[in-house]
Every structure is written in structure tokens, then in C-alpha cells.
């Protein structure tokens, strides 16, 4: 079923945050990740949808039904909490069977369904363990199974991977995605990890200071950020202040850059955005003579294994670039069609 919120606002009190006029919808089977820095209101949004907070304004619909003041227990949503919140006195199986018990399903049937769901999340051998006897990743799976076993109308994930180490996080990410696909359930995933959001979601929503800045597919968000904040928050980016100088040119502190005609008026103030991995490398034997090519030197070099990320000083500024190339670099070129101009706020 779908989840949609319209003009949703909530305030914790003057000056202490909340969200402002959020409109967002998640279609059946769609996976939507909400990202933003801490305090941006993403967890508030989740608590509003799940019913733990009541909005000041706006509406929440789940499967078309208006939620109003309906308490969380009547919303039929599977929620996975940041610290899993497994019941410490119940075994994995009892934890998963609990929502079925609340729905009046008989003991034998609910244990059968719980075992089946646990099996689907890869935990068949651990049904009789208490949460304290399970690893972080296993607890995560139990929490996911518990949130899905009663066929909820939507799944809400509140930073579910933040307690796991990097290795398990990547694996769990794929697993959550697979389980979500198998259930075909509308999912809202709140995270501060932009890489996690890009890799897992069909749709990414970026929030800041209680407002929704952009909602789009991961590639769209990355390739066509609507403003400087989104460009900088999602992935890494070179962001320069610029002024449009005729169609196809922009003036920046590092010089006049050639770019695709933007349609922006001459003299408009813009943010010039280009991604580090799109930069073209110039080895010492190639003279930087083409358009958008700059000579310079490496300021800081970071070898990260699969890539090498370096700060490159050119006249007027420092550019961030990424490459798998290991040799000396004497210059950088910025391919004109990778440059995106964002109207300054």
C-alpha cells in the first residue's frame, strides 16, 4: 500500500526544530530513503507517520486511509527501530510471533508463521535464542522479521544500520532490499548515510532544517542536485561560485569555464558543480591547452584502495578529484558537459 503525506508540519516548540510543510508519497513496493544531517527532521517525519507524534498541520494517508489521530498500534505499520528494541525476555521466535499474538492468531499458527519469516531472513537456526545471545546483525534480522511478519501496510526503518560495523552494514543493506522486494512493501528508510541511501533506494528525499529539498531517483539526485546543499551532501562535489557569461560560459575563481548552454541569463550568480570522478587527468607530457584544462600540483593525496582521492591546487582554487591512476598528475581538465550550474540561493 502507499504512504503519502501532504503539507505535513510539526514543531517541538519555537526554535527547537520539527518539520515544515513536507509533501511526499511512496508508492506500493517503492523504497524511499530520507537523508539529511542530524536535526534535519527526518526522524520526526518517521515518528509522525508511525503515529508517535501528532502533526500540527497536514495529513498522512496510508493505503489511502487518513490517519488523523490514530494511535501507532492501529496504523498497521512495521517499524524497525534504531536499536532494534527487541524484547529482551522473549526468544527470537517469540519476538517475531508477538505481533501475531496481538492479532489473536493461535499459538501453533503464529509460531509457524514466525519461524517461516525468520527463515526468510536467514535465521532459522537461532529461533530459541534470546536477543542478548544474538549478534548485532542477527538482532537486526529479528527486528526486520518482527516488523514484516504481520503483513503491515508499510515498512518504516529508523537508521536500522547505524549500530552495525561497516562490513555487516553493506551486507545487511542488500538483505533489507531483498526482503523488501520480496514483500513488495512501501518502505520509508531514514538515514544520515548518503551512500546507504543511494545504494538501497528507488527514491531519495533530501531534508534540511525541517524542509524537503529534493525528491528524486538516486542518479537524478546525484547528477542534478537542485541546490548547493544537496550537491554537497549527496556524494562529494566541487562547488565553485560563478557568474554566467553568455550561453556556454561561466566565470569562476579558477577562470572562465566552458559549459553546456544553461538558459540562465547573462550575469546570473550560480554554483558551479562538478563531481571529482568526472575530472580528466593530464599527465606531465600533455600540456594543458584545451578548454577547462588547468595546470597545478597535488596538495594532498589519499590512497583509499579502490580509488585515489586528491586535492589539486590550481590558480585560484583547489579541486577535488578521484582516479585509479597512480602516477604523477600535472593538470586537470573539466569536461564541459559534466559541469552543472545551480542557480544561487
Amino acid at each position: 500500500m502507499s504512504v503519502s503525506v501532504e503539507n505535513l508540519s510539526y514543531s517541538y516548540g519555537p526554535g527547537s526544530g520539527g518539520i515544515e510543510d513536507i509533501t511526499l508519497s511512496i508508492e506500493p513496493g517503492e523504497f524511499c530513503a530520507v537523508i539529511g544531517p542530524s536535526g534535519c527532521g527526518k526522524s520526526t517525519l518517521l515518528r509522525l507517520i508511525s503515529g508517535f507524534l501528532t502533526p500540527n498541520r497536514g495529513t498522512i494517508r496510508i493505503g489511502g486511509d487518513l490517519m488523523g489521530n490514530r494511535p501507532p498500534r492501529q496504523r498497521d505499520l512495521g517499524v524497525v527501530f534504531q536499536s532494534y528494541a527487541l524484547f529482551p525476555h522473549m526468544t527470537a521466535l517469540d519476538n517475531v510471533a508477538y505481533p501475531l499474538k496481538l492479532r489473536g492468531i493461535g499459538k501453533i499458527e503464529r509460531r509457524r508463521q514466525a519461524a517461516e519469516t525468520l527463515e526468510r531472513t536467514g535465521l532459522s537456526g537461532f529461533t530459541d535464542r534470546l536477543p542478548a545471545e544474538l549478534s548485532g546483525g542477527q538482532q537486526q534480522r529479528v527486528a526486520l522479521a518482527r516488523a514484516l511478519v504481520f503483513q503491515p501496510r508499510a515498512l518504516l526503518l529508523d537508521e536500522p544500520l547505524s549500530a552495525l560495523d561497516a562490513l555487516h552494514r553493506a551486507a545487511m543493506r542488500d538483505e533489507i532490499r531483498a526482503v523488501q522486494r520480496a514483500h513488495g512493501i512501501a518502505t520509508l528508510h531514514v538515514t544520515h548515510d548518503q551512500e546507504e541511501a543511494l545504494s538501497i533506494a528507488d527514491k531519495v528525499a533530501v531534508m534540511r532544517d525541517g524542509r524537503l529539498l529534493q525528491v528524486a531517483t538516486p542518479t537524478e539526485i546525484y547528477d542534478r542536485p537542485v541546490n548547493r546543499f544537496v550537491a554537497g551532501f549527496v556524494g562529494t562535489a566541487n562547488l565553485l561560485d560563478g557568474v554566467v557569461r553568455g550561453p556556454g560560459h561561466v566565470e569562476t575563481p579558477i577562470g572562465l569555464l566552458e559549459c553546456r548552454p544553461s538558459g540562465l541569463a547573462d550575469g546570473s550568480r550560480v554554483t558551479v558543480c562538478f563531481r571529482p570522478e568526472t575530472l580528466q587527468l593530464l599527465t606531465p607530457d600533455i600540456a594543458p591547452t584545451g578548454p577547462n584544462q588547468f595546470a597545478g600540483h597535488i596538495l594532498r593525496d589519499r590512497f583509499l584502495g579502490s580509488i585515489r582521492r586528491f586535492d589539486f591546487a590550481v590558480t585560484g582554487g583547489v579541486l577535488l578529484a578521484e582516479t585509479s591512476h597512480r602516477d604523477a598528475i600535472a593538470g586537470l581538465g573539466i569536461p564541459p558537459d559534466t559541469i552543472r550550474l545551480i542557480r544561487a540561493d
Binding site: S50, G51, F52, P71, P72, R73, Q74, R75, D76, L77, G78, V79, F81, S83, A85, L86, F87, P88, Y98, P99, L102, R103, R146, A147, F150
Partner: peptide, 15 residues
Amino acid sequence: DLDRLEDAAESLGAG
């Protein structure tokens, strides 16, 4: 951290 456990139970349908 009873709050969190109760929130979880509430979301699962417990009054």
C-alpha cells in the same frame, strides 16, 4: 530504556 520497548510493542499493535 522501557520507552523504546513500549514504542516497539505499540507499533506492533499492543494497547
